[in-house]
Design a protein around this nucleic acid. Structure first.
Lengths: 174, 174
DNA sequence: TGCTATGTAAAACGATCGTTTTATATATGG
DNA sequence: CCATATATAAAACGATCGTTTTACATAGCA
């Protein structure tokens, strides 16, 4: 694992577990096992590092989202939470922590959420056989809700979302 | 408006808009229009102030949640967002920013989410005429989802959640 | 052999963090 | 009228913030 990847992995983990602002660069250099000089050579600045981490997470998350049914969509979330843990949406958290005032971060969040929304709409269209923006928005809300309710309700929140989605899809089909 | 209330109002606003950790005490004293000595006399510490703000928000939010139908539940959220804005759940955000490591904050969040969950279950039971834990969990997920999806999707997310909830309730009734 | 790239360790930068202190001012009520 | 409570302004506390710098080590390649 090269230096950049070690840095990204450590940063994503610390930002996710302890928050972006609360995670200091000293803690980061220690966790990444590199000097601060090397860290800044690779990352540029903390803001750039945050934006980079969001880009990486977007890539990793969206790669998993390439499914064809709504049921599979919620299976993706279930797997994700099992592997990555359940601390809410890192994109919305980064935006909230910076008050939406950091352009590079706000832009990364906007890009991700747009891609996510489009992908959900595509999955719903594939599953139903035709586009349905209203159902797509409902499914998106269920996904976002499961992501955040799972923080305090556990995996049951994902199962509830999945079963609610099944009801909505079934009704939309007939 | 007395000193304590001025402090609470300013703190809730700044914490919500700019994040808990990123909001410094100097910025807070200025916004609250009081010296740091007075602030600490009233608040004790930043952690205590955060816990206090969460308690206040819980009181204010839960007071609005005293409704008898699921439709009214989402009307409450719609009103809330119109009045208070849409930056996600302040409780989950406070927990994420502190990594869940601050007992007073983690406890305030736990208390609020338990009360919220119970209230949703009660509303669903009232609306359906009988308890239904599975539907209640689905409605809770929809509410949490609307809260967070509204950040980037606007009020349409709340309407989508409300209409999805109506479908689920209607189906549960027959 | 020497240049370049890439790394480390450690100190230092000014700024800001949360918090406390010192020194006064101003009301209120017995 | 004088104590008490409650406020202010402003400086200072040590710690930590994000970032840069200085000085040095190692490896690959010309």
């Amino acid at each position: 694992m090269d230096t950049t990847n070690k840095l990204i992995a450590a940063a994503e983990r610390l930002f996710d577990r302890h928050g972006f602002v609360a995670t200091g660069m000293d803690r980061l250099t220690e966790a990444a096992g590199m000097s601060s000089r090397t860290l800044y050579k690779h990352a540029g600045s903390k803001t750039q590092l945050m934006a980079c981490i969001l880009g990486e997470r977007d890539r990793r998350f969206m790669a998993r989202l390439d499914v064809g049914t709504v049921e599979a969509l919620f299976k993706v979330l279930d797997d994700w939470i099992r592997i990555e843990g359940t601390r809410g949406c890192l994109f919305l958290r980064s935006n909230a922590e910076t008050g939406g005032d950091t352009p590079e971060i706000a832009e990364a969040v906007r890009m991700h959420k747009t891609a996510f929304q489009n992908q959900v709409a595509r999955i719903v269209a594939t599953d139903l056989g035709h586009e349905d923006p209203e159902i797509a928005e409902q499914i998106l809300v269920l996904f976002e809700g499961a992501t955040h309710a799972a923080i305090y309700r556990g995996e049951g929140a994902v199962r509830a979302a999945q079963s609610a989605a099944a009801t909505l899809i079934e009704r939309a089909r007939s």
